[in-house]
């Protein structure tokens, strides 16, 4: 049995609503609102970015040969849920819950590795709240109260803008708990960890030989022109050449695209994932192709069992779905 570590007393939307209406007479509760994950997600504009190919001189498709065997011992994923519980004037008060867990595979069965992380926080735009209201909330909520306008001097008072700001704060917190768990793994374990999403957000994680990030969403595609055609034309069990992803705020990683399901009859993104691994030093650069093949085989091995009924099952591996189901059960 694992205990849950929360950053404060566990909150639920109805309790919070009841308390806030008592504390702030001007608060207007809302009922039946969808979570912000459903209303806000996917607002980022699609974009294409060029990336430097580090395996050969141009982006090509390679067949991933050989038997696919399991190479990952564990899977890491996080979840978030943000819900508007009331408005104080035009300011939304959002209850956000983030959680992350590593599910460890032993004897083909999934078990929870160490303690999953869960945080409940209340996200409020301080700039649009009266000092009295903020002080009242701060007295009641303490450290769990988060100002969504902190560092955003130009934010407008449009409720949607304030709601998006809250959503992004929750997203940031979720990335934070994921990162903490991944760093614990890298510090204490010696087997490969499958991380749902990129790994470049944390230096220790991004440089570890244990971590493999697998990205399912492709709002940003790291290919343009002919290279884009190559990526979208990948067949089942084909991967692209390895390329380098660099970002001023993130650690450089090596990445490649991989088709884990037959795309015939489907859209170009069907079964397409992008893998991220630590960028090797000059002495290991020659092995990068072989490393990409190994990791691709590991990822292909995870294609069964299917992650159905999740709608993203073509790209999602079962271990990640298991993490999500586990987190859904405990949050």
């Amino acid at each position: 049995m694992h205990s849950i570590v929360a950053s404060g007393a566990a909150l639920n939307a109805r309790t919070l609503q009841r308390e806030l209406t008592g504390l702030l007479p001007e608060a207007r509760t809302v009922d039946g609102e969808s979570t912000l994950e459903l209303t806000t997600q996917g607002n980022d504009a699609p974009r294409l970015m060029s990336a430097t190919v580090v395996e050969g001189d141009r982006l090509q498709a390679f067949q991933v040969a050989g038997e696919s065997g399991p190479g990952f011992r564990a899977f890491l994923d996080g979840t978030q849920k943000s819900q508007v519980v009331c408005f104080v004037g035009s300011a939304p008060v959002v209850l956000g819950t983030v959680a992350a867990a590593v599910r460890d595979r032993r004897e083909r069965r999934m078990h929870t590795w160490r303690t999953p992380l869960i945080e409940h926080n209340v996200y409020v735009p301080r700039a649009f709240l009266s000092p009295h209201a903020w002080a009242t909330l701060e007295r009641r909520l303490g450290d769990t109260l988060i100002d969504t306008t902190d560092g955003l001097p130009d934010i407008i008072s449009h409720p949607y803008a304030l709601r998006d700001a809250a959503f992004h704060r929750v997203q940031f917190r979720r990335e934070g708990v994921e990162r903490r768990l991944a760093e614990q793994w890298c510090a204490d374990e010696s087997d490969a960890l499958f991380i749902d999403g990129g790994i470049s957000g944390s230096e220790p994680v991004a440089v570890s030989s244990l971590t493999v990030g697998v990205v399912k969403s492709h709002r940003t595609l790291y290919a343009e022109g002919e290279a884009l055609g190559t990526v979208l034309g990948l067949q089942y069990r084909q991967r692209s050449s390895v390329f380098r992803i660099t970002s001023p705020k993130r650690t450089t990683v090596a990445s490649w695209y991989l088709r884990i399901r037959n795309p015939d009859g489907h859209d170009p993104m069907w079964g397409l994932v992008r893998a991220e691994v630590a960028y090797p030093g000059p002495s290991r650069m020659a092995d990068l192709g072989a490393r990409a093949d190994d990791v691709s085989r590991w990822i292909l091995a995870e294609a069964s069992p299917l992650a159905l009924p999740d709608g993203r099952w073509d790209k999602m591996v079962y271990g990640v779905r298991d993490c999500e189901e586990f987190l859904r059960a405990i949050t």
Binding site: R105, R108, R109, M110, S304
Partner: peptide, 24 residues
Amino acid sequence: ATPLHDVMGHDGQPGSQVAVTDRA
């Protein structure tokens, strides 16, 4: 969710490669 998902997962071949993870 449905037995069909298992059929799809094994490409319709009961004897095909055993999944690396047992379902919950």
